[in-house]
Simulated scan of single mutants.
Amino acid sequence: MLRFPGHGRSEPDDIVIGPLDLPARVDEALSVQALAFGLGPDEVAVRRQIVLRHMTFPGARAFGATVGGHLVGFVYGMPNDRTHWWSTVVEPYLRARGHGDWLDDSFVITELHVHPRHQQRGIGRALITTITEGAEQPRSILSAIDIESPARHLYRSLGYQDLARQVHFPSAARPYAVMGAPLPLPRG
Rank of each mutant, 00 (worst) to 15 (best):
I131T: 03
T83D: 15
Y176E: 13
P184Q: 09
A135Q: 09
R53M: 12
L185G: 07
D81C: 10
R48N: 08
L30G: 12
V89R: 07
G180M: 00
P23A: 00
I50T: 15
I50W: 15
D42F: 12
W86G: 13
H115C: 07
G40A: 10
D14W: 09
V72M: 00
W86S: 08
A34R: 09
E11F: 06
D42T: 13
L2N: 15
I50G: 13
I109C: 07
G134Q: 08
F37G: 09
P5S: 15
Q166S: 13
H99N: 11
L103S: 02
A62S: 10
A60W: 02
A164M: 13
G18R: 03
Y155Q: 05
G159M: 02
Q119A: 04
A177Q: 04
T88S: 14
L20I: 06
Y160F: 08
L112V: 00
R174M: 11
P150G: 10
Y93E: 10
L185H: 12
A164F: 12
G77R: 04
L112S: 01
T88H: 15
P116A: 03
V46I: 10
P5C: 12
Y93N: 08
T110V: 06
A96G: 14
P186A: 10
R156G: 11
I147G: 13
R95P: 04
I109N: 10
H54R: 03
P12G: 15
A24M: 02
I131W: 00
G98H: 10
E28T: 01
S106Q: 03
P58M: 07
D104T: 09
M78Q: 15
A65Y: 00
A96L: 12
I128C: 08
I131Y: 01
E28A: 02
F74V: 01
L185A: 08
T129I: 12
A172Y: 14
H153I: 15
H99C: 06
T83I: 08
P5W: 15
P116T: 05
T130S: 05
L2I: 15
A62M: 05
T129E: 11
L39Q: 14
V51E: 02
D105T: 05
D27Q: 00
R187Q: 12
G188F: 11
A173Q: 15
A62N: 07
